[in-house]
Nucleic acid binder design. Structure first.
Length: 856
RNA sequence: GGGCCCGUGGUCUAGUGGUUAUGACGUCGCCCUUACAAGGCGAAGGUCCCCGGUUCGAACCCGGGCGGGCCCA
């Protein structure tokens, strides 16, 4: 009985001890480099991680066996807010109330403590990452490259500072990029508020954000809206605050929404911004960085936004200015880290110009092979929708410092590229001296910025870090661009986009040859896993119960590009497969034993299985090269179980001492476990060590080479299939009739008969003596021939063939007399089934295709 | 509102123009055949979501629906 737990951990220790997976800097082999997603060093391992890293591992193992020098770094992402938030929670502290560098230290310690556990998890998953090319994104050696790549863009004039409304998370107290916003549906009130019109009358506007009345600058209606025809050009008086605002007509207003009259504030949301530019309005701050109302809000100043909204609505109601309130559903932008609704705050930030790089990113994306192809569309969509530049500054602590010093007159400086290149760490403007004593332009003192980078600034240079950019030109030329970026589809607009943008901008070339976009693992119920839905499955529990290889079987079975619900039955199927392989191993061990010699002549059915096996190798290799591991594993599995085990192994049990048998079993079974090795690294190693190691020599199956086709024998393939089908039919007969078989007489095949005899332990005779009569049972149209040749006339031919008497039709065809409406029906246009009939024989007769079997 | 993906026996699923639609799970029947009963052999079970179109021929291509999901506004 296979003890997966003991076996799996034994081999994991062995691989670690023997350093099986290493990138070889001196090797002449072609390089296959993987731009591995550095795993984020907070949270738990969820099933999505476990599955994705398994997919990557399968590709890495495959490429290794195919003779590549595989660059598969062990790496972790260690920057940013989630870790900060975790540290705040763990110690019950607030970031801004803790000394900066003290807080950073706590973050580092927190992350490093997690990393140990994460490495252990990788080991349990059977990952083959190389710890000798390790990195983490918060390390001084990595942050230095982040800064160098930024300096390169700064020197190219792609960086600027501007006061501009930015997405602001009031809880995190920082600017965030468009790509970091998620949208949530929520219920809110649409308030109908009465405005007096200076020129007489009144206008009712509908708004979800009455607290922004203090920043109201304009009222807009649709130009065709009859209700407001005479209002356009007049001036409304804002309730409570009293400012006069113009009523304008604008196509953008939706007359169906609310009253058809909207107020434009600065800055409620991104749409307002458009109006601000269009009508040349001012940015008026109504909300501050903590999400409270500013002085401008008068008596509501200092109140959190939501509270102010409630209060102001109450006050308006008291004064009879709020005439209606209805509940509506709206989409609100929230911070993707903490889900706090974002606000727009007008503030100085650092930007990287991405709008002018759009075309270049698009072109570069076209040079990269996308798997699956349609995922590229998501990137294109995102590029097309980009309206703002990339806000790269964050008002946080635990991230790469922005290497900028400024003087009071607004002159900004970064360290010289060459100077930072010589250092062995990054610079931190909050502690390091400025690159120049005073401002080289105006002589004023320089002050280091306290802002840090958006974490995508770090992660978007992973290909540059991995390939020794700015450190070792020789290595860089050898490794860049990388072979493959594996990642999931939710971060196409961030990680993939920013990586292409920055790597292209810095090096002038694409970052990778291929990008593999992975999908999500959903709960067993088909919905996203969610603690509150109770459908979360912990991969470590699965592995504990079923083993790593069965889990990896599930992972490999996920169709590429489609979100897949987690399925226990796939894991269970994986476990059965592992057990099946284990037992095949036990069987093979008894047969293979000592040295294997290639026999002078192979037995017929050995030629058959070797040919089928070679076909599988060819097909699987092709699929693996296209990253279609999901299809590949099914093909190997099906061949192994239903062809090799159920049919071949059963038919050779009578000749196990034979040289040809032993050779064939050795070849095919070794090839099978090699093909399974990237998927099921443990059981294949177990079998390899037990059965094959002495004969092959390598100290691990994972160091052996991928199998190659060994035989192509068309005749053995064709006839072997008939033998196989014949055996299946005889089995069925035996099952139905429950009779002992004494003798089998076969007509139609002569080769491979020995294995029919061996399988049923019966005498087999070839060729039938006596009064046999051949009968045509069925003549069917061959669409593949008739269709293309006769097009619209195919129908009548088909109908004719179907309705004719098979026996006489076939005769006519043979004599060239078969025709319909002037079209001659030839042999290639039909498929004929014949059977032999026997008279005066006490026996059962089975027809298997054109093979006839008589059982006595 | 836009884009993309998906819809195949009870359940899940493979399949990108050609005879009889793949496999798994489940169900049922038979079998402990010397690797494996966590196994083997076999059976039942399908309007390939709907409607139209293209085609000699459509699960597959095109158009329009319906349903589910993802991304974006």
């Amino acid at each position: 009985m296979y003890n997966f737990k003991e076996s799996e951990s034994r081999w994991q220790d062995y691989w670690e001890k023997e350093k099986i997976y290493r990138f070889d800097w001196d090797s002449e082999k072609p390089v296959f480099s993987i731009d591995v997603p550095p795993r984020y060093a907070s949270g738990k391992l969820h099933i999505g991680h476990a599955t994705h890293y398994t997919h990557i591992d399968i590709m890495a193992r495959y490429k290794r066996m195919r003779g590549y020098n595989v660059f598969f770094p062990l790496c972790f992402d260690v920057n940013g807010m989630p870790i900060e938030v975790n540290v705040e929670k763990k110690y019950g502290i607030k970031m801004r109330e803790t000394p900066r560098h003290e807080f950073i230290k706590l973050c580092e310690d927190f992350a490093n403590a997690n990393i140990g556990e994460m490495i252990r998890q990788y080991k349990i998953l059977g990952e083959s990452m190389d710890p000798s090319i390790y990195y983490q994104t918060d390390a001084p050696y990595y942050r230095r490259i982040t800064q160098l790549s930024f300096i390169k863009m700064f020197e190219k004039g792609l960086v600027y500072k501007a006061k501009h409304p930015v997405n602001w998370c009031p809880r995190c107290g920082t600017a965030i990029a468009d790509a970091e916003i998620e949208y949530r549906k929520r219920k809110t009130n649409l308030n109908y508020i009465r405005f007096k019109v200076e020129e007489g009358g009144e206008i009712v506007i509908a708004t979800t954000r009455p607290e922004l009345l203090c920043t109201c600058q304009l009222i807009a209606v649709h130009p065709d809206d009859e209700r407001y025809r005479d209002m356009v050009g007049k001036h409304a008086i804002v309730p409570i605050y009293g400012q006069k605002v113009e009523i304008v007509a604008d196509e953008k207003v939706d007359p169906e929404f609310g009253t058809g009259a909207v107020m434009i504030c600065s800055v409620g949301d991104k749409d307002d911004l458009e109006w601000i530019y269009k009508y040349n309005l001012k940015f008026l701050d109504g909300i501050d960085e903590e999400g409270r109302m500013t002085e401008r809000a008068g008596k509501y100043a200092g109140l959190p936004v939501e509270e102010a909204r409630r209060k102001i609505a109450e006050d308006l109601e008291k004064e009879g200015l709020l005439i209606k309130r209805e509940e509506i559903e709206q989409n609100v932008g929230v911070c993707w880290r903490c889900h706090t609704p974002i606000e727009f705050v007008n503030k100085e930030q650092w930007f990287i110009k991405i709008r002018e790089l759009k075309d270049e990113v698009r072109k570069t994306a076209d040079e990269i092979k996308w798997i699956p192809e349609f995922m590229k569309k998501r990137l294109e969509e995102w590029i097309n929708s980009l309206e703002w530049d990339w806000v790269v500054s964050r008002q946080r602590y635990f991230a790469t410092p922005i290497p900028i010093w400024e003087c009071e007159n607004g002159h900004a400086f970064v360290p010289r590229f060459e100077d930072l290149q010589k250092m062995d760490r990054h610079v931190d403007p909050t502690v390091d001296p400025p690159p120049y004593e005073n401002c080289p332009v105006c002589g004023a003192p320089l002050k280091g910025t306290e802002d840090v980078f958006d974490t995508w600034v770090d992660s978007s240079i992973s290909p540059l870090y991995n390939t020794f950019w700015a450190r070792d030109d020789e290595k860089f030329r050898k490794l860049y661009p990388m072979s493959l970026r594996p990642q999931s589809h939710d971060i196409i607009r961030t990680w993939a986009f920013y990586t292409i943008l920055r790597c292209k901008s810095v090096t002038g070339e694409k970052p990778w040859e291929d990008i593999f976009v992975d999908s999500f693992i959903l709960g067993p119920d088909g919905r996203p896993m969610h603690t509150s839905w109770g459908n979360v499955v912990d991969p470590l529990d699965i592995i504990d119960e079923y083993g790593t290889d069965p889990f990896r079987y599930f992972a490999a079975s996920c169709t590429i590009g489609e979100d897949t619900p987690f399925r226990y039955k796939d894991v269970k199927r994986g476990r059965k497969l592992v057990i099946k392989l284990y037992n095949l191993g036990r069987f093979a061990k008894g047969v293979i034993r000592e040295e294997i010699k290639k026999p002078e002549e192979l037995r017929f059915m050995d030629r058959w299985i070797l040919t089928r096996y070679s076909e599988v190798v060819r097909e699987v290799t092709e699929l693996m090269d296209e990253y279609r591991y999901d299809r590949a594993i099914k093909i190997i599995e099906n061949f192994t179980w239903h062809v090799f085990a159920d049919q071949y192994v059963e038919m050779i049990k009578h000749r196990l001492e034979d040289e040809s048998t032993r050779y064939t079993l050795y070849q095919v079974f070794l090839g099978i476990i090699k093909m399974f090795a990237p998927f099921l690294p443990h059981i294949t190693e177990e079998i390899y060590q037990d059965v094959f190691r002495g004969l092959v020599g390598e100290k691990s199956i994972h160091l052996t080479s991928w199998p190659e086709p060994v035989l192509k024998d068309e005749y053995a393939l064709e006839v072997g299939e008939k033998v196989k089908d014949t055996i299946a039919e005889i089995r069925r007969w035996k099952n139905e009739n429950r009779k002992e078989i004494k003798e089998i007489i076969i007509d139609g095949i002569a080769d491979g008969i020995e294995d029919i005899a061996g399988t049923f332990k019966a005498k087999v005779k070839v060729g039938i003596e006596g009064n046999a009569e051949e009968k045509v049972i069925e003549v069917k149209p061959n669409f593949a021939v008739i269709g293309p040749k006769y097009k619209e006339r195919a129908r009548e031919i088909v109908d004719y063939i179907r309705n004719a008497d098979p026996e006489s039709l076939w005769k006519d065809i043979l004599y060239g007399k078969a025709e319909i409406n002037g079209i001659k029906i030839t042999e290639d246009m039909v498929k004929v089934s014949k059977a032999k009939m026997y008279h005066g024989m006490e026996a059962s007769v089975i027809n298997v295709g054109d093979v006839t079997v008589i059982i006595i």
